[in-house]
Write a protein that binds this DNA or RNA. Structure first.
Lengths: 112, 112
DNA sequence: ATCAAATACCTTGCAACACAAGGTATTTGA
DNA sequence: TCAAATACCTTGTGTTGCAAGGTATTTGAT
């Protein structure tokens, strides 16, 4: 018994995940668990099993690099950093998001 | 050779498709080709093979009904209409969209 | 010294779903 | 009679988020 809403919420999130991660990394270098926490803070809740493969993919595409750093406690952390290529691509994603927002906005106004 | 941007544009669109269609039908009854055209008008470009199965699915879920109507030319048209249940679910999707927009907005502001 | 808890990392298998491509049916008009 | 336009729909493929499960490191309590 799954609701249409919950299902679509997932779908919507799915569409902006890479974008969100690049946005976060454009601001500062972060490790996976920290990224997940930041996303959770803005109600974009996402599973570990989603983020790790995604970071690996973005790294393969040359949009990210990473370095290891000691942690205050626990195992070392893999800090990801956005590359120049990544920054350029991010601009394109910004545009894509804006376009989509405007599209939805237009349809919404068409009502009433 | 696929760009990250084009790929993500598709992903983003994907997430809001059901939402967009319900929004359009909340305004007026429409047939599939017309819905596709309206989406195209706001740069949410989508293929036929995407929309038809989706309408069928939404109908099965009880969010839409349809009736046949003669066309000025060509074959008859299947006009879809949103149900009361559909309208209720749409409210939930409105909320989901707003939440996502705010989430992205927050992350974006975190920059600079 | 040992073991539990916390923190991080990562992989596998499944299910959902958009899209490209291809197909059928109806009407009009040349 | 046949091409063009309009409309409907189905099938096969590839991508991908997620649940579940697994490994490794450190700290601190017993």
């Amino acid at each position: 018994m799954e609701s249409i809403i919950e299902n679509n919420r997932t779908q919507m999130r799915r569409g902006v995940l890479e974008y969100s991660i690049l946005l976060i990394l454009a601001s500062s270098d972060e490790y996976a668990s920290s990224i997940i926490q930041k996303l959770k803070n803005v109600n974009i809740i996402v599973a570990e099993g989603t983020v790790y493969p995604l970071l690996i993919r973005l790294k393969k595409l040359g949009l990210l690099t990473y370095r290891w750093e000691e942690s205050p406690q626990g195992p070392p952390r893999k800090y990801y950093k956005i590359t120049e290529t990544g920054k350029q691509q991010l601009k394109g994603l910004d545009a894509a998001w804006d376009e989509l927002s405007e599209g939805i906005s237009s349809i919404r106004k068409g009502l009433k």
